Measured scan of single mutants.
Amino acid sequence: NKFNKELQWATWEILNLPNLNEEQVKAFIDSLKDDPSQSANLLAEAKKLNDAQA
């Protein structure tokens, strides 16, 4: 289903952001699991944090 694909993509993207630490990655992944419908928003937040920590 649509959410599953978005969830998988967002998870992969977050796991490959170079500037997030392990705790941050885990928090984002946990949030994705809690509410897959928010995957696009969570991914945007993760990318923002990644850029801020570059």
Rank of each mutant, 00 (worst) to 15 (best):
N1H: 05
N1K: 01
N1Y: 00
N1G: 07
N1A: 02
N1R: 00
K2M: 15
K2H: 15
K2T: 11
F3W: 11
F3H: 08
F3N: 08
N4R: 03
N4W: 15
K5Q: 15
K5G: 08
K5E: 15
E6N: 05
E6Y: 09
E6D: 07
E6R: 01
E6G: 03
E6V: 06
L7I: 14
L7W: 12
L7K: 03
L7N: 04
L7T: 10
Q8G: 04
Q8E: 15
Q8L: 10
Q8A: 13
Q8M: 10
W9K: 08
W9T: 09
W9Q: 15
W9V: 14
W9F: 12
A10N: 04
A10K: 03
A10P: 02
A10W: 07
A10I: 14
T11Y: 11
T11Q: 09
T11I: 15
T11S: 08
T11M: 14
W12N: 14
W12V: 10
W12F: 09
W12A: 15
W12P: 02
E13N: 05
E13I: 08
E13K: 06
E13D: 03
I14E: 01
I14K: 01
I14D: 01
L15D: 03
L15H: 11
L15F: 08
L15Q: 15
N16W: 04
N16A: 12
N16Q: 13
N16M: 13
N16K: 12
N16L: 10
L17S: 02
L17N: 01
L17P: 00
L17D: 00
L17I: 01
P18H: 09
P18A: 09
P18R: 07
P18E: 08
N19T: 04
N19M: 08
N19Y: 13
L20M: 02
L20N: 00
L20S: 00
L20H: 00
L20T: 00
L20G: 00
N21M: 12
N21P: 02
N21S: 13
N21G: 08
N21Q: 09
E22L: 10
E22W: 08
E22S: 14
E22P: 14
E22Y: 09
E23Q: 14
E23Y: 10
E23V: 12
E23I: 11
Q24D: 03
Q24R: 01
Q24K: 01
Q24L: 04
V25Q: 13
V25K: 15
V25S: 08
V25W: 03
K26N: 05
K26G: 06
K26M: 11
K26L: 11
A27V: 10
A27P: 02
A27N: 13
A27D: 07
A27R: 15
F28A: 02
F28I: 05
F28Y: 09
F28G: 00
F28S: 01
F28D: 00
F28M: 04
F28E: 00
F28W: 03
I29K: 03
I29S: 03
D30M: 12
D30H: 09
D30A: 14
D30F: 09
D30S: 10
D30T: 13
S31N: 11
L32E: 00
L32T: 02
L32Q: 01
L32Y: 02
K33P: 02
K33D: 05
K33E: 10
K33W: 15
K33Y: 14
K33G: 07
D34G: 14
D34S: 14
D34N: 13
D34H: 11
D34W: 11
D34I: 10
D34L: 14
D35V: 05
D35E: 06
D35K: 06
D35M: 07
D35T: 08
D35L: 06
D35S: 07
P36Q: 04
P36K: 03
S37L: 06
S37K: 08
S37D: 05
S37Y: 06
S37T: 08
S37M: 08
Q38V: 05
Q38D: 11
Q38G: 10
Q38K: 14
Q38T: 05
S39Q: 06
S39N: 06
S39F: 15
S39I: 15
S39R: 08
S39A: 14
S39V: 15
A40N: 13
A40R: 15
A40D: 06
A40Y: 09
A40V: 13
A40E: 09
A40M: 15
A40T: 11
A40L: 14
N41H: 12
N41Y: 15
N41P: 06
N41K: 14
L42S: 03
L42R: 05
L42M: 07
L42D: 01
L43A: 05
L43E: 01
L43I: 13
L43V: 13
L43S: 03
L43H: 03
A44E: 07
A44S: 14
A44P: 01
A44W: 10
A44N: 13
A44G: 08
E45S: 07
E45K: 08
A46T: 01
A46R: 00
A46V: 02
K47V: 08
K47S: 07
K47A: 06
K48T: 09
K48F: 09
K48A: 04
K48G: 04
K48V: 10
L49H: 03
L49G: 00
N50W: 01
N50S: 14
N50L: 01
D51K: 09
D51G: 06
D51I: 06
D51H: 10
D51Y: 09
D51N: 12
A52N: 10
A52T: 11
Q53Y: 06
Q53G: 04
A54E: 10
A54R: 02
A54L: 09
A54Y: 10
